[in-house]
């Protein structure tokens, strides 16, 4: 059995479950699901860089947080409608992604990771000192407003379906990007950059472009988060958030398209249900992270795919010794 053959039934079940969630408020807290959806989009957007281009950005909180602050600021202080606020958050994050990306790709590998981390710290200090962000208190009481001027988003259920729709569109963009000629070139860069260059691809431009796209989607995720919680706070731009999104991606499986979504759900659940234990959350997150790096580098979805393949060794082109890299299983 191949993971791909399971994809369709699994996604139908997932979509039905997501649509049904608001009808069972006694089982699951709707705001928590919405937060998880934001992280799902964030992680999948982040994985465009890590999994599909082979670039580790250690500063994605800068884009997530910028989306949150910009959307929150516009909606709260200028009365900008909900959908324009979200768009603006995504746009600003994309612009920032283009700038930071253009700088960071001047180096590669771990240097690039260090540069993005340093740049995100710069962004962090900006939001700490900027007059509109409320510094340590954060940008509070952001009004939720209405969707397209009709649907009142103060109702959690209405907001939930709107968020679900936007995240679905975002994920579709990710999926479309990965399964496009553009995505093919990204994978070529990941596998063998010098060869991609010698084939005549403007590698730097591709990298900046995917950086921009990933940052823009991360910004939209952040903007949604700010509206849902009616709060944009320093934690959104803190390096802890950058670390969280790496963990989500790694845990879910960075060589898959939607693995990071599973990782995001697990990490969000860990944070949610372990919250009463205070600082222990950080310790547990660290231990899970360590286990992932040491033993499960393919992530949950990646390992699952490998197990399913192992059970049918008869098809030689899909034996287990062939790493999951390069092949994008949903």
């Amino acid at each position: 059995m191949h993971l791909r053959s399971l994809t369709l039934p699994l996604s139908i079940v997932a979509v039905l479950a997501l649509l049904a969630i608001p009808f069972f408020p006694q089982w699951i807290y709707l705001v928590f699901v919405m937060k998880t959806l934001c992280f799902v989009l964030f992680a999948c957007a982040f994985n465009l860089l890590l999994g599909h281009t082979g670039i580790l950005s250690f500063g994605h909180a800068a884009f997530f947080g910028s989306g949150a602050y910009i959307a929150g600021h516009l909606v709260k202080n200028y009365g900008v409608p909900f959908e324009l606020g979200i768009l603006a958050g995504g746009l600003v994050a994309a612009l920032l992604g283009a700038v930071i990306g253009a700088l960071a790709i001047r180096r590669s590998g771990i240097y690039l990771a260090m540069i993005t981390l340093a740049m995100s710290q710069l962004v962090y200090f900006f939001y700490l000192q900027a007059p509109f962000t409320g510094a340590e208190d954060g940008l509070q009481r952001v009004p939720r407003g209405t969707f397209l001027g009709v649907i009142d988003l103060r109702n959690d259920t209405a907001l939930y379906y709107v968020v679900l729709g936007i995240v679905a569109v975002g994920l579709w963009v990710v999926w479309r990007t990965v399964n496009s000629p553009f995505g093919q070139v990204l994978r070529a860069i990941r596998e063998h950059e010098p060869r991609a260059i010698s084939l005549g691809y403007p590698v730097a431009r591709y990298k900046i472009l995917v950086f921009t796209l990933s940052a823009g989607l991360s910004g939209i995720a952040g903007a949604l988060k700010a509206i849902i919680f009616q709060l944009a706070a320093l934690y959104d731009v803190h390096w802890h958030t950058s670390g969280d999104v790496i963990l989500m991606t790694l845990l879910g499986g960075m060589n898959t398209v939607f693995g990071p979504a599973v990782g995001a759900a697990i990490v969000a659940a860990l944070n949610h249900y372990l919250d009463p234990f205070g600082a222990w959350v950080t310790v547990i997150t660290g231990v899970v992270f360590m286990a992932c790096v040491l033993a499960f580098r393919q992530g949950v979805v990646g390992e699952l795919g490998r197990l399913l393949k192992l059970r049918r060794p008869s098809r030689p082109e899909q034996t287990a010794d062939q790493p999951a890299r390069g092949e994008s299983q949903p």
């Binding site: 250690f58 670390g243 959350v281 950080t282 310790v283 547990i284 231990v287 992270f289 790096v293 040491l294």
Partner: peptide, 14 residues
């Protein structure tokens, strides 16, 4: 880099 980062979380959290 990631493994040493996870050590940061464990030590700082601890």
């Amino acid at each position: 880099l990631l493994l040493t980062f996870s050590l940061v979380l464990v030590l700082e959290g601890g």
